[in-house]
Amino acid sequence: MATGIRTESEAVGLATRSTRGEVDGWRDQPVLLRLVSIALFAGIWEIAGRIPVSFAFPTFSATFTAFIGLIADGSLPLAYVSTLQPLLLGIVLSAFLGVGLGTLCGLWRTGEWLLIPVFIVLQAAPVAAFIPMVTFVYGIGMTAKTLAVMILALPVIVLNTYKAVRNVNESLVVMCRSFLGTRWQVVTQIVLPDASPVIFAGLRLGVAAGFVGVVLAELLITPTGIGDLITFHRSRADYAEMYATIASIIALSTLTLIVLQWIEVRVFRPETRGA
C-alpha cells in the first residue's frame, strides 16, 4: 500500500485524461447532444415532479422559478458571498501548503516517509468526521469553514504534487545534469515544469473537495451561507427554494471545474489541444 499510492485522481472521466490516453469529458461532445441531454434531464425532472414521486419533490419549472426568486430577493447572492469567502481562502491556503509539502515530499525521502502516509490515511478516510470537532475548537465563523475546506482539499493536492514530482521524467533530469544544471536548476527548470500538469489536476480535485468541505461545514455546524439557506428552506418546507439552492451550488462547482479543466487543457496539455 505504501509503494503504489493511489489517489482519487486516478479516477477516470473528469479526473485525469493523461494516463489512459483517451480524451473524454466535456470538450469533444457535440454541443447539440449536450443540450439534448440537459433537456432530457429537465424533462424527466419535470415529469417526476408532476406525478409527483414525493410531496417533497418539486417540478423543474417550480425549482427554476424559485431560483429566479432567490436571486431577485438577494438571499442567494448574499449566501454565496458568505460561502465563497472561506472556500476561496481555504483553496488558496491549501494550494500553497499542498504544493509546497508535496514537492518537499517528492524530493526529500525523510519528508516522504514521515508525511505521505498521513495524507494517504486522510485521503482514504472519512475526514468529514472532524468537521464538528473543528467547530468546537474554532467556533462557527470563517476559521472553522476555512479549516473544513482545507481538511478535505489538502490531502489530494499534496498527494498529486508528490506523485507528479516523484514520477518526473528521469531522462530529462539526467539531461539537465549532464549539461551541468545545479540542483536548484533541476528542480525549477525540469521537475516543476514537468510535474505542473499533474499538480494542476490535483488543484482541480482540491477545488472539488473544497466545495464538499464548505457545504458540509455549513450544513453541519455554521448557520450561514448556502448550507444555511438549504437548511432554512427545508425547515419551512419551501422545497422548490431548497432544490434551487442545492442545484445552484452543484452547478457552480461543475462550472468551476469545467473552467479549470479548460485552463488545464489550454495551458498544461498543449499536446491534446489539437485532438
Binding site: A11, L205, F211, V212, L219, I226
Partner: peptide, 8 residues
C-alpha cells in the same frame, strides 16, 4: 462524480 454531493 465531482459535485459536492453532501448538498444533496
Amino acid at each position: 462524480s465531482s459535485a459536492p454531493l453532501s448538498a444533496l
